[in-house]
Design a protein around this nucleic acid. Structure first.
Lengths: 344, 344
DNA sequence: TTGTAAGCGTTATCAG
DNA sequence: CTGATAACGCTTACAA
């Protein structure tokens, strides 16, 4: 049997409310008894029961994190950032992967509701289109990461980069390097960040006076295989592009890998730009030019925002607003720029 | 205010125990009332409170997953596997990253205990050396992934590959390709899997009659930067190796990337073999020869084992034993074998 | 088939 | 400063 607060009370010869106070270091208890109780609890191997505590406090000190998959390095970094600051603030993370399957995503949200999480953080999914109302119904603050927050609700906020700006940066870079036929490989369907990045692509083309060619937009899925398949389709085009901007780094890496098999060299035959700047981006060959997002920091900020919202509670006067973090272009060799570096 | 079982009871004009039964689809309640109650609960937006439920059932339907970092693709895959089968069995995952810091790892375990998880799964950390006893004290089944399980305790089991065999496979492959000076780059300190892989390295050298040279063992950390640094040290050696076996793929990728900066070509100047076969391994350049572990499946098996242990409870007659899954060498170009493939 | 009541381990509100 | 006692929302004997 587990030792409860009652057992400690008995052993210490005090009432269990005193034990409760002593353990929560309440000033309402004599220093001496406090010390004795604490020592005793320690000795007896007492461990507080968060379940029981939550039932009365109506707080679980828990946040739910919904992701498509932790297998995507971008997501992993964000989750790590969330976990990091959650831990530092005595919160616990419940992880739910939804594998981009609407049904699982819905189920995950329902489960988080049942588990009474104090807040929910959602990373790049099509939540907006799909189940924002479900989320809001659970009645706790929701923070969206890289998800457009249309109806900035009473409790729903977002942190993300300016995706359109990023997409524009990437595409303009390729334009500047002399490319005219530039392709875009999309991410998974219905993700708002994908739409925004593509809008940036459009914008850059417009600004350069390059007509938009729908044949140059290829559907990917945000994963390696999506990029690889896109390359095959690209390579089969009558007049293939000389450059390609990819929804994210994983797509770009898959695409580059397949290009090699197809005997296309990057960047000579095809310049490639990604998005995210996952840690690996600098380490593949050729090193990937990409739009960097401060992934881990975004996770931290999301958690901090959740924290702020939870503290604010029903107090609507607390000012919280969506956070837009800076993204920037990181130029490496995949877009044609040669770089040499020495061993540090 | 949230709608509770009592509210539904009132609305339905029945006692709340009846509602409880109806919602858990108990056969002890008339079909008609059951249907009515369920519909009503639905309409009123009732959502069961897992906290309250757990308090009485003494089960949380939750597993704690302790990792070094989800940022390592190997770990991410394992976690995904765990999450996957957890979800399929109505369990929820609490994630705790410990960043290889003993203090955080300890804190994580304590937190999982407080949160009353029904089981704990630990992925590649130095748990064995560090706090196995802490884990056992929490009194729930523990499953170790790729962690040597010395004192296969009453409740502690493991799933993993035969690391020594894998290390041997990798090294023997390099020997077979004619290498005599083969280096090993270690993982983080005190990880049992690292020690075992290195033992395999030793074994293969022995079997080939190659004397072991301690100068060829370099300390890494299981991450990109560790591999990169190792390369720099290797390159500085009087007689550098012609091949290197790395603790894991991330190390290998970091090392290869730095080799390129140093104008060493892989595999011509230096053959490289990794361990894990993370999804990216096939997509980098040169494609990485590595020892493949069925990562996601290992996660699934770990969760299934936890499930079995939880069901077994105190029934010691249920036979559970450590699981060793097969690992195999996947030969790609980084160790010198040219491969050509077409677009599928 | 349904209702009553006890209890899960805490915190919190009163009195003393 | 300390001790009863009432919740918290639910499951589950035990009665009816």
């Amino acid at each position: 049997m587990r030792v409860s607060i009652k057992d400690v009370a008995e052993a210490a010869g005090v009432s269990y409310s005193t034990v409760s106070r002593a353990l929560s270091d309440s000033p309402l208890v004599k220093a001496e008894t406090k010390a004795r109780v604490q020592r005793l609890a320690q000795e007896m191997g007492y461990s507080p029961d968060a379940i029981a505590r939550s039932l009365v406090t109506q707080k679980t000190q828990t946040v739910g994190v919904v992701v498509t998959t932790v297998t995507d390095p971008f997501v992993a970094e964000v989750v790590e950032g969330v976990e990091d600051t959650a831990q530092a603030n005595d919160y616990t993370v419940i992880l739910a992967s939804a594998a981009s399957e609407p049904a699982r995503e819905l189920a995950a949200v329902e489960m988080l509701r049942t588990k009474r999480v104090d807040s929910v953080i959602v990373t790049s999914s099509r939540v907006g289109a799909l189940y924002l109302e479900h989320l809001e119904r659970i009645g706790v603050p929701v923070v969206l990461v890289n998800n457009h927050n249309e109806q900035s609700g009473r409790y729903t906020f977002s942190v993300g980069v300016d995706n359109q700006h990023g997409g524009c940066l990437a595409t303009a870079h390729l334009v500047q390097r002399g490319h005219r036929r530039i392709a875009y490989v999309t991410g998974p369907a219905d993700h708002s960040d994908d739409a925004e990045r593509m809008a940036g692509y459009h914008q850059a083309l417009d600004e350069a006076g390059i007509p938009f060619d729908p044949a140059l937009v290829l559907r990917g899925n945000g994963r390696l295989d999506g990029g690889a398949q896109a390359l095959c389709r690209l390579a089969g085009l009558a007049t293939p592009p000389t450059a390609v901007f990819c929804y994210n780094d994983m797509t770009a890496i898959g695409l580059i890998s397949m290009a090699r098999r197809e005997n296309l060299s990057v960047p000579e035959d095809l310049a490639v730009v990604g998005f995210d700047d996952i840690p690996l981006a600098a380490h593949i060959y050729p090193p990937l030019t990409t739009v960097a997002q401060p992934q881990r920091d975004m996770g931290r900020q999301a958690m901090n925002m959740a924290l702020a919202l939870m503290i604010a509670g029903d107090d609507l006067t607390v000012p919280v607003s969506d956070i837009v973090v800076r993204c920037k272009l990181v130029v490496r060799e995949s877009s044609g720029v040669k770089i040499t570096l020495d061993c540090p």
